[in-house]
Design a protein around this nucleic acid. Structure first.
Lengths: 114, 114
DNA sequence: TCACTATATAATTATTTACTTATATATTGC
DNA sequence: GCAATATATAAGTAAATAATTATATAGTGA
């Protein structure tokens, strides 16, 4: 296995963000699928500002990146982040959250919105 | 690599604890060396109650265990914890904190106290 | 038993965090 | 340009967190 090291302080900063279930689930989802904000609002059944604020924290650390596509802003994992290998190793150990996206597709929410 | 999975919710709970630099460093130290509370107080240059409270949180999740040896109570990583493999993979990626213990030895604090 | 040391716990306080409500900005399609 | 939609941001609030101070408990050695 490759040896990755990250300063303790930086790791703690990342874990602080990962200590919230919503953000951690978001990271797991975004690691496999780009999502727009309104999809995440649907998935987490919470308010749009709450989602935006979570995304901002993740973005401030460079863990995710945004990309505007017309009316929508899509978020995805920033795989160029210096710490992505560290993060990836963690996310790999979490169970897939694909079912959450599948629900959206079944509802038709995914297509209609984004 | 072996495949370990942990529920997202449980992982977030662990990360919440790891989101504090003191606790994360503690975990890294305890993964290799048992320590008594007074050593940790020395290492982190903080109050004894603060250290005790951090240890309690880690213990409440079963991440560390305590063992009385005479006057002192030694803490160590609970390697029997269901999630230890997950935790171990994380701790492996953090830089060694052995220098902190070495400092104590040089000061003589380690021996005199414990 | 008593003084001393190590540790835990309780209560208080200050800080941080996450959410809500309200509002601003940007894009689309008419 | 205007209405509608998507998103961000600001301000306020409630809840959670971490530290401090004070006190309790437990072991040691005289």
């Amino acid at each position: 296995m490759q040896k990755i090291t990250i300063e303790i302080e930086k790791a703690a900063t990342i874990f602080k963000l990962f200590g919230d279930k919503t953000r951690l689930t978001m990271m797991k989802i975004l690691d496999k699928h780009d999502c727009c904000v309104c999809e995440l609002v649907e998935i987490f059944k919470t308010s749009q500002p709450a989602i935006s604020q979570h995304l901002r924290k993740l973005r401030d650390l460079g863990l995710v990146k945004e990309e505007r596509r017309g009316q929508w802003i899509f978020y995805s994992i920033n795989k160029r982040n210096e710490y992505y290998p560290f993060i990836q190793q963690i996310l790999e150990q979490l169970p897939s959250q694909d079912d959450k996206l599948k629900e959206l597709e079944e509802q038709g929410t995914r297509i209609s919105c984004c």
